[in-house]
Amino acid sequence: MSTPNNGMQTIHAMANFMAEQHPEIMLIMAQKLRLHLSNSLASFHGNRVAHGPFKGLLLGADTHWGEGADRGGMILGLYEQEILNIVDEIPARYRTFIDLGAADGYYGLGMLVNNRFDTSYCYEITERGREVIAANAVLNGVADRVIIRGEATREFYNDLPAEVRDQSLVLVDIEGAEFDLIDAGTFAAFSKAMIVVEIHDWMVENGPEKMAKLQVDAARTHRVTEIKMGARDLSGIPELQSMPDTQRWLLCSENRARVMVWLRFDPIEMDDTPDA
């Protein structure tokens, strides 16, 4: 009969073997643990964001983007914190949020729950994603403030009134298609808007050159700031204080293939204009 100690030795031996011979399986197991932790946090908080600028946002049980493993980070206000940090810096004159690649509506609806923005335009290419956004908008009581649209075409901005464009924050996260969608015409159309683009230069041919062209196209109308994925401070989150380090930091993971980069474009025209 094996003793508990012998059982643990066997588990450690198996773990060592898997780590050495099949590291890809260990990554899958880590992702499964991350999903389990996220589901536990979601259950504890009733699927409601508990920290950060989107506090109070209800996340629907149904998901379109990913398998829900990001939910823990969203609830804790950690997910894409680099973007969340921008929310507190947005000038008050911006009242419309435009989300290209809206997925489940985390940003499109999160920007509305605390009345930071009046209206959201959510562009989502998949029908399933649009259905989830619509359901989550009803869940959060903001359906009358969300305009849901399909794929954003090259000159999507022509469908938006000039006064809407001028008071907008535009977020672009379309998995490499940003280089085909955004050009000098886009920046000119949004010359008074703030634009944030998640960069996927490694996913496309000649990515670095296309990233450089994006900045050249913006030069006449916008100042550009590069933002890289940074550190997370977990010390102020009460529900993580008694959690083991490995699990706590795993909740910070976004399962990225590499360190992410965003480009923030601030309008030159508005540099010397006082906030309303």
Rank of each mutant, 00 (worst) to 15 (best):
T3S: 15
P4H: 14
P4L: 15
N6D: 03
G7K: 11
H12A: 11
H12D: 10
H12V: 12
A13F: 11
A15D: 13
E20Q: 13
Q21S: 14
I25V: 12
L27I: 03
A30H: 03
Q31A: 13
L33N: 11
S38N: 10
S38I: 07
S38T: 08
A42Y: 00
G46Q: 05
R48M: 09
V49Y: 06
A50H: 14
G52Q: 11
F54R: 02
T63N: 15
T63P: 03
H64L: 06
G66K: 09
E67G: 15
A69I: 05
D70T: 10
Y79Q: 13
Y79T: 09
E82L: 05
E82Y: 06
I83K: 07
N85V: 06
V87M: 15
V87R: 02
P91K: 09
A92L: 02
T96D: 04
G108S: 15
G110S: 01
G110M: 02
M111I: 12
F117E: 02
S120V: 05
S120N: 03
E124P: 03
E124G: 03
I125Y: 12
T126S: 14
G129W: 07
R130W: 00
I133S: 04
A134M: 10
A135R: 14
A137N: 10
V138T: 14
G141H: 02
V142S: 01
R145I: 06
R145F: 09
E151K: 08
T153F: 13
D159N: 09
D159K: 00
V164C: 00
R165V: 01
S168H: 01
S168F: 00
L169E: 08
D173A: 09
E175M: 10
E175G: 10
E175V: 10
G176L: 12
A177L: 12
G185D: 15
F190T: 05
S191C: 09
K192R: 07
K192H: 08
A193E: 03
V196G: 06
V196W: 07
V197M: 13
E198H: 13
I199D: 10
M203F: 11
V204F: 07
V204N: 02
V204S: 02
E205T: 14
E205Q: 14
P208V: 11
K210L: 15
K213G: 00
L214C: 12
R220N: 12
H222Y: 02
E226C: 01
K228F: 15
G230E: 08
A231V: 09
L234Q: 09
L234M: 11
M243W: 13
Q247H: 13
E254K: 12
R258H: 12
R258D: 06
M260E: 13
W262D: 01
F265L: 01
F265E: 02
D271S: 08
D275P: 00
